[in-house]
Design a protein around this nucleic acid. Sequence first.
DNA 1: AAAACTATATATAAGAC
DNA 2: TGTCTTATATATAGTTT
Lengths: 196, 196
Amino acid sequence: MFFLLMEGKQTRGRQKIAIKRIGNEDDRLITFSKRRSGIYKKASELVTLCGAEVAVLVFSPAGKAFSFGHPSIESVANRFLGQNIAPNDNTHPLVEAHRKVRINELNQQHNELLVMEAERDRWKVLKEGTSEKSSQGWWEAPIDEFSLQELKQMNVMLEEFHKNLHKKINELRRNGGASSFQAHTGHATNIPFCQL
Amino acid sequence: MFFLLMEGKQTRGRQKIAIKRIGNEDDRLITFSKRRSGIYKKASELVTLCGAEVAVLVFSPAGKAFSFGHPSIESVANRFLGQNIAPNDNTHPLVEAHRKVRINELNQQHNELLVMEAERDRWKVLKEGTSEKSSQGWWEAPIDEFSLQELKQMNVMLEEFHKNLHKKINELRRNGGASSFQAHTGHATNIPFCQL
DNA sequence: AAAACTATATATAAGAC
DNA sequence: TGTCTTATATATAGTTT
């Protein structure tokens, strides 16, 4: 602790910062990661609360891509581009997107899986009140209906599914497809897939 | 005021809500609008603080499209979509890779340029006196750090640089192949993913 | 290089205009 | 619709583990 003036307080808490480029690279990277997660969370809440479709695309200064999307990044982005770009312009990349779409479906499932896994532990805790069955979004699964036993079984199934998914994705990758995704899991378990 | 128990308080303040679909339509619409703005603000802060590129696409349940993007929705979306499309019909991998790297460098410069130009224009506008409700948002640039003279010089430099950049890009296109500049913008930025 | 921890800054629900 | 207010919920800066 640098400041001895803080009688009785363990930290200075959140400090105000100016909205300008963060000079220190380490701080900037940490802030990038934290705030990116924060935006994903906000986006997912907007989806759930209002039934909206949202896509968030982020490129780090280093050029690494991150994204959040519901129902999928592709669907939202295409919907947007489709209405803003000449609809019958077939030179647009969308034409050759067949394999890509398949891979993206898998990736989306993978993202959902990661989210579910991340949420799974929270569900255990959440087993208190609120018997809601409004299954709007993918994360809004029927929480309360799972006993601990069922959660354990689900855990096993998820892990199995997870492995299979990776295998399929890797097969597709070897066949020439490519995609790169990162899920918002709340746990930052990043498994970006690699092209080539 | 429903609750007479609120001694001395004018409102109950922010109330906790469950993250589930808001039943009342009016509330849902208001929340949609407020939170959408909130996400834009967060996105713009991420841009400014970390130098990221961000696009946020939102569709209301009614199907109306909203978006935020920096440097532009199109550039970020194309960059993302392009990155997820597998150019599996490459000629020679190494040649292609080298060209991609070169174009990637140019694209990054170009994106930086777009950012700088966008900011420059904002500064210009602000200098010219239309200072209305621009007291918030990421475009609130550090005006005071730049004299008018410096802005003019920067303007010239930017335009020169911009022209050269386009020239180089066009050269590469002629030597390299089919894609448009826009397509290259998308394809050129997956260095972190394919380890060329 | 993540994750956890406080204390504080910020976002926003509910209401009023 | 949009803007303002208030009080509270939530996000997060700075730091430690």
